[in-house]
Nucleic acid binder design. Structure first.
Lengths: 226, 226
DNA sequence: CCCGACGTCATACCCAGGTACGACACGCCG
DNA sequence: CGGCGTGTCGTACCTGGGTATGACGTCGGG
């Protein structure tokens, strides 16, 4: 650590700011180079003091921490300085967490965490890594696991009834191709495509290609964005 | 902490096991109640020693940590014991991390982490929370942010052209309803539904309802599982 | 007050898509 | 060998869905 980590503290409670500042300043590798009582001023201070890390409270008057974080992490044209943002909150509220992470925050800590945690969090974040409160981590993992429990297991499961060729056709349906286009792509007669589709719909208990598209998405055969 | 946290250590290197055991046993609130040199034996030991937390190395002979974790976290019928699993690895490899989290692991640490981290990780995990190595956290957050940059912004963005009523119709299309069913649901003449659909397709540059379904999923208007 | 956006509906037309039935070829397996 | 699953294609039929055009009522804003 040749050069210290530059930190600013944005929180509407003066006592909290003072406490954190004292705590962090006591570290030889950390400099507190600014403070602000609300999001708007926080952004300004950050722009002029160009800190490495911004400690940002979530709930604040004037401009809340979320908006301020967004402003700092996705700055308007011309602004080159992009600090790391470490969000702080008294209670952990889901929405805030997710919004902050989406905005690009590097961490999310509860204020009741041990002081040592805050200090190490600043170091971790400054190093370009990320750190979350354990309860937040748990939730994020749960969410992650829920979203993709096994992207390639569920589909093949219910897709079992379909032959490879049928699966192939189904995927093209799910891409929005017409029967004619599918026939062209697979080098088939259009009627053959119809035959396949007929069997697909029968096997899966669907009515038309629109429902087939739904099935393809719900089963994971195709996924948004892919 | 009236009753200590029961921990077992699964790692193919005896020295590592010994080191961790010594480190953890020194804590008054942690008991090391078992060890195993590979995944298969790890599962067995876990079943008999019923620990609160299983420290599991990723890379192991016989049965790797991932498979063992899956076995412990999604046990066959009849097995009631479900310990928390804390994965350990020497280097951090993406795939392993995601697989482990999907399987339901409560944490993922690098072996080069400070000893204090391991100890607190055990406590955190035992408490039902989760904890990840900072580099892993960063990656998970990045992934999270990438997956859903703003689930309710992108859609409404391109959905802008659509009127509320049209959006409503589109959603029902994406649910697989026929025009007749949509008419019934919205208390409309079938022709009105057709009119709406015609406009929807024109505005979005789509050809038929199948493509409309795709659009609904891709834009986030509807999501798999919802 | 008039116009534009929105929502509603009608009449008419056409075709892609889905259904029904049958047929033939190929490869695998009991 | 015989049968089954799979993939291929043909003919025939029917309907749901998409297109075209026009019309009417209601709002809200300029």
């Amino acid at each position: 650590m040749t050069i210290p980590i530059r930190v600013i503290i944005v929180d509407d409670q003066a006592m909290v700011r003072a406490g954190f500042a004292a705590l962090l300043s006591a570290q030889s590798d950390i400099d507190v180079v600014g403070e602000a009582p609300d999001g708007r001023q926080g952004v300004e201070v950050s722009r002029s003091a160009h800190p490495d890390v911004v400690l940002m409270d979530v709930r604040m008057p004037e401009m809340d921490g979320l908006a301020a974080a967004r402003e700092l992490l996705d700055p308007p044209a011309g602004v080159v300085h992009r600090p790391k943002v470490l969000m702080l909150t008294t209670f952990d509220v889901d929405d805030y967490v997710y919004e902050a992470l989406r905005a690009g925050a590097s961490g999310f800590l509860l204020k009741d965490a041990p002081p040592a945690d805050l200090i190490s969090a600043v170091r971790v974040v400054a190093a370009g890594e990320a750190l979350l409160a354990p309860s937040v981590t748990r939730r994020l993992i749960a969410d992650f696991a829920r979203q993709r429990p096994a992207p390639r297991k569920d589909p093949s499961l219910r897709l079992n009834g379909l032959t490879p060729r049928e699966t192939e056709v189904l995927e093209l349906i799910a891409r929005g191709l017409s029967n004619q286009e599918i026939a062209g792509r697979l080098v088939l007669a259009e009627q053959t495509v119809k035959t396949h589709i007929g069997r697909i719909l029968a096997k899966l208990g669907l009515r038309d290609r629109a429902q087939a598209v739904i099935f393809a998405y719900e089963s994971g055969l195709v996924s948004p964005g892919s």
